[in-house]
Design a protein around this nucleic acid. Structure first.
Lengths: 329, 329
DNA sequence: CCGATCAATGCTCGAAGGGAGCATAAGATG
DNA sequence: CATCTTATGCTCCCTTCGAGCATTGATCGG
């Protein structure tokens, strides 16, 4: 499994550093995936990511000596580039690029972070802006059903598997992997496999960043600079997994919210719709929230109670999450 | 939560880099937590970690320009230091130390890895040897009941909480956290919280590495150089969590094994005993293994069937693990 | 050869968790 | 008032999983 990951990773970024060079690699880079969720009036919410330079790039900057710690460095850079404060922060993954910056002959170690906030005003030189997750990964949003996968992706993956039949690739293995990751042939869809899906599309030449492209061109979805879209996929996978066993959604919500607000937020992140009544049961039986006493009137229907997150659960319980249930409800 | 982690981390390693220094931090270091499990004839198995220099240090080395990737660098260093090949490898965490190496004025970025193997011959200049996990974390082994926690740790944590009552610390919060992490007051024990437990003991001054020690001296358990014991705790937490949803145990077992071998291995890692019949049921219903046809005769009782891991499951299923069940067995 | 002991294996019971759906309540709207 | 929309309560039922009981095959001391 890990070996597979490594193999794929090596395939992805060329291993072209001079052999036998014993100098130590230097230069650390910090990259942030800043996530917020736009409530969305009377409809689904949208998960957003902060990008710069026309949506092509994630905010980042070098780790400097003045920084007390990696996280402090990250906060500093993001706040200077975007004028936006960071809330919850979690390390994602560290990787090494073979000398991307041309001036310094060496690897750059990049340390990526996931950060959760609420949307806010942006400012900065590099045109920071909030972009929807699903502009980059349209196939990851299945709240309206998985049409894109069924209609556009499945056939192209089939073609890719077909192409592997003669070569070393083993078409059957390709088909199994595609079915597993994209929920084909009646297999279930696992939202937290976003990264693996992106990697498969990369291998299949179906994204713009691929080494070699499939004849029919890339899938819909905005590309990003370098590995950035891959890092975003990592963040999505991580957050989708984490939301199930840790109460992190609340970092993305307003202080007071209705249960439907909460559900829409979770659905936005998970990329799929959920059964309303069961969702409520889940939340309530876990004592994650408490009533504020006030009501929300602009629901479009019967007024809903407003809740707030019970911060106490963070220290009360080791494991407590928003066990995301399934269902198309 | 993340903020809490960061706060604690800042407390742990002093933030004493010169302020305002805008030079870029350099030098990346790779650290490996190499894990194996000794079968243990007719009894419990023992999880082992590879350490050097008298068991005080984890194998590590600088990331060099000649390395194609971080993992390749790690494999190179470990194999040269220990003459031991790495199997499954997974990244753990990256952190920055404020200039530990005196010669270079800068941070060192350390990237830690977890690697799983089987025990094998060792060789190298720095006295590599296999050491038991639980030499470093005696309280994490509850296969024989949690006596150490109940008798030695609980009272000292109580004292620590007591001490917080007057100060800013809030004794009640300390008590809650201790009870939560160490399963006091009838709370359940969560084996995957090994890291958090170590951090709490660190804060309470109960381990040798603590900034300031409690009057009665540290808890039993070998200390390590710098942050290394903390990294080991991270590895333990990660592996204990992972084992539940991914079939990684098999990396630690011989190619053919009995179900009891498998159970003992899982118990060794999880640090607690499990219900035998339910364990079998779990393994079998998941189709993780297949019979080899041979039998093991030296069981001490009725001969057991030998099994092998069905490698196919790695590509058949997205999520499949050894859902560790509880029970004292 | 017999009985004791130690594991391996098979099976059953019962509580808890979680997927689905029915039914009712309470505002907004025309 | 009829209808639409969302909020909320509650029931059913199947699967999962913690706990035990019971039996089967070997080994070993008498």
């Amino acid at each position: 499994m890990a070996r597979g990951e490594e193999r794929r990773a090596d395939k992805r970024r060329g291993a072209n550093a001079p052999e036998g060079d014993a100098r130590q690699a230097g230069a650390a880079n910090l990259i942030a995936v800043l996530v917020a969720v736009t409530p969305g009036e009377q409809g689904p919410a949208e998960p957003m990511v902060l990008a710069i330079r026309g949506g092509t790039t994630l905010p980042s900057g070098p780790f400097q000596l003045r920084h007390r710690s990696l996280q402090a460095g990250l906060r500093g850079w993001v706040e200077s580039q975007t004028h936006h404060p960071l809330g919850y922060v979690e390390q994602l993954y560290t990787f090494a690029d073979a000398d991307r910056g041309a001036d310094r002959a060496g690897h750059v170690v990049s340390i990526s972070y996931l950060a959760l906030t609420r949307e806010g005003p942006l400012a900065g030189a590099d045109e920071p802006e909030w972009r929807g997750w699903y502009e980059y990964f349209p196939w990851e949003d299945r709240r309206g059903g998985g049409k894109l996968v069924a209609e556009a992706i499945a056939p192209r993956l089939a073609a890719w598997a077909e192409a592997g039949d003669g070569a070393e690739g083993d078409g059957a293995a390709r088909r199994r992997r595609a079915a597993l990751l994209f929920g084909l042939d009646g297999m279930p869809w696992h939202e937290e496999l976003a990264l693996q899906r992106y990697e498969l599309l990369w291998e299949a030449g179906l994204v713009a960043e691929s080494r070699q492209h499939a004849a029919a061109g890339p899938m819909p979805g905005l590309a990003m600079v370098g590995d950035h879209r891959r890092i975003l996929a990592t963040a999505i996978s991580r957050l989708r997994a984490k939301i199930k066993y840790r109460p992190v959604v609340f970092e993305l919500l307003a202080p007071a919210f209705t249960l439907l607000d909460l559900q829409r937020c979770v659905e936005a992140i998970a990329g799929r719709a959920m059964h309303k009544q069961n969702f409520r049961r889940l939340i309530e039986q876990q004592d994650l929230v408490e009533e504020t006493g006030a009501m929300a009137r602009e629901t479009g229907g019967r007024p809903a109670k407003l809740f707030r997150f019970r911060r106490a659960v963070l220290e009360e319980r080791a494991v407590a999450g928003t066990k995301v249930g399934v269902t198309r409800g």
